[in-house]
């Protein structure tokens, strides 16, 4: 508790902050529940957009402006569009029957165990410190420390760390993205051998 008092010592939260958090939390939770309970995959994808937008608002609220922009562009702009593209491409954009329970007793058990896990984590975090560890190991979020001339701001700090401390990991993500793109192309390509086999089998069946 000493830690949290120390962290919150600067100023008390004002009512706009509380309002923004409450609104964003409501949007996030409604969207998340919508993803899980939607019968139609398109509705689930749109609920996912809602949740991602709420998370972006909370990023801005916590001075992570650049990440909020990236969240909207990459998640809502690319990943959800990819989901919708695949849903439309496969033609599975119709309601499914989610009332039937394929495995008996699975749903109550899933809910019970997940809620128990959540309660355990929250109780553990609330009775101990919410966050522990050294402060400013990698670098401060706002770069105006130690007599630097102008406040560097969060994107500048992020970019500096990305290309110095985390340079190897950054290059590794480049390789990962290339591998993912090549893998997706290989997976989505219609294999010519299977195609030829199918044609051969139909031709061999026709005379018979």
């Amino acid at each position: 508790m000493v830690h949290s008092v120390l962290l919150a010592a600067s100023t008390r939260p004002t009512w706009p902050d509380v309002l923004v958090f409450a609104a964003a939390a409501a949007v996030i939770l409604v969207g998340a529940i919508g993803v899980v309970t939607s019968r139609n995959p398109v509705h689930a994808a749109l609920s996912l957009v809602m949740t991602l937008f709420g998370v972006a608002v909370l990023f801005i609220e916590q001075a992570a402006d650049f990440l909020a922009a990236v969240q909207i562009i990459v998640y809502a702009g690319a990943i959800v569009v990819l989901f919708l593209f695949v849903i439309m491409f496969l033609g599975v954009d119709r309601a499914e029957a989610i009332n039937v329970e394929p495995l008996g007793g699975q749903r109550p058990l899933a809910v019970i165990f997940s809620v128990i896990t959540l309660g355990g984590v929250l109780a553990m975090a609330a009775t101990a410190h919410w966050v522990t560890g050294a402060r400013q190991v990698v670098g401060p979020i706002q770069g105006h420390v130690a007599g630097a001339g102008s406040p560097a701001g969060e994107p500048a700090q992020l970019g500096k760390q990305l290309f110095t401390t985390y340079l190897f990991a950054f290059e590794a993500t480049a390789a990962l993205l290339v591998i993912a793109v090549v893998g997706a192309v290989v997976l989505a390509r219609r294999p010519p051998t299977v195609h030829a086999d199918r044609e051969d089998s139909t031709e061999s069946e026709l005379p018979a």
């Binding site: 916590q62 992570a64 560890g133 402060r135 990698v138 992020l158 401390t165």
Partner: peptide
């Protein structure tokens, strides 16, 4: 992002990236 703010450490935001 929350832990990055609480510890004033940019490393958390890099991890989000």
């Amino acid at each position: 992002v929350t832990v990055a703010r609480m510890l004033n450490d940019i490393g958390g935001q890099v991890l989000v990236f």
